[in-house]
Design a protein around this nucleic acid. Structure first.
Lengths: 150, 150
DNA sequence: CTCTTTCATTAGCAATGCTAACGAATTATA
DNA sequence: TATAATTCGTTAGCATTGCTAATGAAAGAG
């Protein structure tokens, strides 16, 4: 009786190609972000601030999977560019809350729009069916990332 | 008669989520590469050398979408670590051919194995069906990247 | 033979990552 | 309450990785 033995190499094959595709995809798109005048780390942190709301430096560092000293410098850069501000915490004087400025919100949304338009333009070669399948797989991937724990 | 109007926003929605998923995926996996003792740029260049064979510095820079001065430094780092060597070109003395050493091949394959195993382990939560669909979409994505031109 | 082009390097700047060490504030404990 | 331990952010200093501009050496064009 033919059982279906789950092929144990399958997930590794997908993992390999997925990794490669992700690298090359981001390498292409990165240049669009840089066109905004801010580097990728600042842009990404700003994105967290805009969509997640104000938060402490430590929380922001954790969200970006970066150590606090690194985030201190990223925030300093954002502040110098007028895209975010440090706000003292009224309850705990050790904490510093970071908040995106209106200018920061604007720049993020413009950059996001440009980047997405650029990427979407290159997805136009796909059939509607392939695009739909890709959309579902990206959703699958989002689920994987959600449950990720080292 | 109900025609199917192609939704023009669809590709942008996919683009947006795809971008986000790629960022978060690589952020997670990056740490595995760094565990090999070499940074991501060196690791990636070494990968091109191992799978694409020896090539000139300029070709390697183009493959990695990086300017020649940057690649000069990456190769110097690889050479210091004994992972690649510069070989003078017999036909054209301006050119420098770069070749991965056996040690470089070994390190790359070990790192690759570790990284893929790590990523694959997190894909294990997926059903066989979802995994298969993801595999197909990654292939679709590879096709998109192949035809990419700025 | 001279001029131009090509290829790699050097020099110097900026952004991003890290660890170690510190200072200030808060919390826990003796 | 006074002191010790912990937490939070910063500073200092290092390495990697990206860029442009300028240099040098070799090859090709005229």
């Amino acid at each position: 009786m033919p059982r279906k033995p789950p092929p144990p190499l399958r997930s590794e094959a997908v993992a390999d190609r997925l990794h490669s595709a992700a690298i090359h995809l981001l390498r292409r798109v990165r240049k669009q972000d840089i066109a905004s005048g801010e580097g990728p780390a600042r842009f990404s942190a700003l994105s967290v601030l805009v969509f997640g709301g104000p938060m402490t430096l430590g929380q922001l560092a954790a969200a970006e999977q970066v150590k606090p000293p690194t985030m201190t410098r990223i925030v300093s850069g954002l502040e110098r560019s007028g895209l975010a501000t440090r706000v003292p915490d009224s309850k705990d004087a050790r904490r510093v809350r970071i908040r995106a400025t209106p200018k920061g919100v604007r720049l993020l949304q413009e950059g996001r729009k440009r980047r997405i338009a650029y990427l979407a333009a290159h997805l136009e070669i796909l059939t509607e069916k392939d695009l739909a399948a890709l959309g579902k797989s990206v959703e699958t991937l989002r689920r994987v990332l959600e449950q990720w724990h080292d």
